[in-house]
Simulated assay, not measured.
Amino acid sequence: MNYFEAFALALIQGFTEFLPISSSAHLILPSAILGWEDQGLAFDVAAHIGTLAAVVIYFRKEVVSLLSALFGSIFKGERSKESKLAWMIVLATIPACVFGFLMKDIVELYLRSAWVIATTTVVFGVLLWWADKNPNLNDSEYSADWKKSLFIGIAQALAVIPGTSRSGATITAALYLGFTREAAARFSFLMSIPIIVLAGGYQGLKLATSSEPIHVGFLLTGIITSFISAYICIYFFLKLISRMGMTPFVIYRLILGFGLFGYLLMGS
């Protein structure tokens, strides 16, 4: 890895982590198509730190409110719409943790391929288009009950398959359930916080017990670039989503997926 690759990969991570177009797919493709070396575990941790900082800082008021309400419900028995939402986010996180733990080896061995990415990019792009056409997009994120949260959580669990897109799967599920586009995006972004914390913590533990060399310059490049690009992405996505809908991302996914199919067929 050189500084250009570190910058490019962190930029990709930041811009695609919260868009419904799959960050994992875009991070795998440079090595599959351009022959870039795997960025390594340390860089993955750095990129996760950057994107986590971006979403936490952007939603800092909501994060403080939800955590306060969550602890208030535990230690004081307080009940509020914020405490309910906090518990629904906790519930929605569980399927991804279970599925990720059970499937991580299978995903690493069999599903990190360009063919899988091309297929899931197209399939979940079509599902996103279909869900976005729901005529009853009226609910806020506070309408989430345990059934809705579990459904969105299962959708998030499917995102361990490269090309699916965590934000794409959760936004698709929320739209299907009748959330407004803004509410679906906010719920998805808030759901990302515990997932990124858990994934980054798991990778950090692996890094701490590995002998992988650490290049401080590459790590700082990854953290700073992914933070700035992720923050910009969240800001503009939430500002524009009500006007543009999901169609631009659906079109992008279809172009990317079918383009990748064409590339693979020509190379076979």
Rank of each mutant, 00 (worst) to 15 (best):
T172V: 02
T172A: 10
A174F: 09
L175H: 08
Y176G: 13
Y176Q: 08
Y176S: 13
F179M: 13
F179K: 10
T180L: 11
R181P: 13
R181C: 08
R181M: 09
R181L: 09
E182V: 15
A183V: 12
A184R: 03
A184K: 08
A184Q: 02
A185P: 11
A185E: 03
A185G: 10
R186V: 15
S188N: 06
S188G: 10
L190G: 10
M191T: 05
M191A: 05
M191P: 10
S192P: 14
I193P: 15
I193M: 08
P194V: 07
P194G: 10
I195P: 13
I196T: 11
I196V: 15
A199V: 15
A199N: 08
G200Y: 06
G200H: 09
Y202N: 12
Y202P: 04
Y202C: 05
L205V: 13
A208P: 11
S210Y: 04
S210G: 08
S210D: 00
S210R: 02
S211V: 13
S211Q: 14
S211K: 14
S211N: 14
E212I: 07
I214Y: 03
H215K: 11
V216Q: 04
V216L: 14
G217K: 05
F218A: 09
F218W: 01
L219H: 01
L219I: 11
L220Y: 04
L220D: 04
G222Y: 01
I224C: 12
S226L: 08
S226A: 14
F227A: 08
I228P: 05
S229Q: 03
C233E: 00
C233R: 04
I234V: 11
I234P: 04
Y235S: 06
F236M: 05
F237I: 14
K239D: 08
K239A: 12
L240E: 11
I241R: 05
I241A: 07
I241Q: 07
S242G: 14
R243Q: 09
M244L: 12
G245V: 06
P248G: 03
F249H: 05
I251F: 00
I251W: 01
Y252C: 02
Y252T: 00
R253D: 01
L254S: 02
L254M: 10
I255P: 02
I255A: 11
I255E: 00
I255Y: 01
L256F: 14
L256W: 00
G257N: 05
G257S: 06
G257L: 05
G257V: 07
F258P: 08
G259R: 03
G259P: 10
G259C: 06
L260R: 06
F261T: 04
G262E: 00
G262R: 03
